[in-house]
């Protein structure tokens, strides 16, 4: 359990804090999405949570211990956090993809290679991979290290459909015994992939489950965000009296099923 208590950050004493005092708890078995407009401080918050940046105020508790209490505790904590950067290139330094994987893991890498379809890339230099392939490699390395807490900053940005579903599949598996926290701008994907949502703005903060946001879709607009397409479609159809209010339309399939039922009813008449 990771507990954030009374936390905030100021770039300098003259600038207002980035976000309000934050209090929340992250648990194993869940994928959390951190949502907010660009520049609200999502990356900064990820850095604080992962032990890379000391907060101006407040504490980060891991197993009831403040991770910023001493250098020793902080070092120990960092070994349990896997951080996937927005720009994965900063992580790489070996000559081949295979060496890169072996460096981070003593033992068999065959399983992870298969899991992420890396077979045909093993002899390439990590630096000559495409942007999307670099992101996949970074995640593979992080999962090999098996961290207690996995943090990802835009790990699916720029991935094609296949890459995105590969990442989603692997995270679903990984989350069972771990905490996963993601920043992801593609809200259509976020609501397919995540279980809990941390909404952040400079004035307010709210933690919601998937059911919560389907019930209160206005939450996106409240935080300056454009809602995911399926939510927008649901809202439009409710407004036109085609779908019933107070019903939860979580994905395209559900919406399509109801439309199909309506079409079939019309046909029967």
């Amino acid at each position: 359990m990771l507990k954030i208590s009374n936390l905030t950050y100021q770039f300098s004493p003259h600038i207002l804090p980035l976000f309000p005092n934050l209090n929340f708890t992250l648990r194993k078995g869940e994928i959390y999405a951190l949502l907010g407009v660009n520049g609200v401080g999502k990356t900064t918050l990820l850095k604080i949570i992962s032990g890379l940046l000391k907060p101006s105020q407040g504490k980060v508790f891991w197993h009831d211990q403040n991770v910023y209490q001493s250098k020793k505790i902080l070092r120990q904590y960092r070994t349990q956090v896997g951080f996937c950067l927005q720009d994965p290139e900063h992580l790489f330094f070996k000559q081949t993809v295979a060496d890169e994987l072996k460096y981070h893991h003593v033992g068999n890498i065959a399983k992870i290679v298969k899991q992420f379809n890396l077979e045909h890339l093993l002899n390439y230099s990590p630096f000559e991979l495409s942007g999307g392939q670099k992101k996949i490699l970074q995640l593979a390395i992080m999962l090999l290290k098996n961290p207690e807490i996995l943090i990802g900053d835009e790990i699916t940005a720029g991935l094609d459909a296949k890459g995105q579903s590969l990442v989603a599949k692997n995270l679903q598996k990984f989350k069972k015994d771990h905490i996963v926290l993601l920043v992801n701008h593609d809200l259509n994907q976020v609501i397919q992939m995540c279980d809990n949502f941390l909404f952040l703005s400079s004035e307010k903060f709210q933690l919601m489950t998937l059911t919560d946001i389907l019930k209160y879709p206005d939450i996106f607009q409240k935080f300056g965000l454009i809602p995911p397409d399926t939510i927008k479609i649901g809202q439009e159809l409710i407004a036109r009296g085609i779908l019933l209010p107070d019903t939860i339309y979580s994905n395209s399939e559900k919406i399509a099923q109801i439309i199909a039922t309506l079409i079939n009813q019309k046909k029967a008449k």
Partner: peptide, 10 residues
Amino acid sequence: QLIFPATLAI
């Protein structure tokens, strides 16, 4: 391998 839009999926 394009991201499939919700409108088309429906």
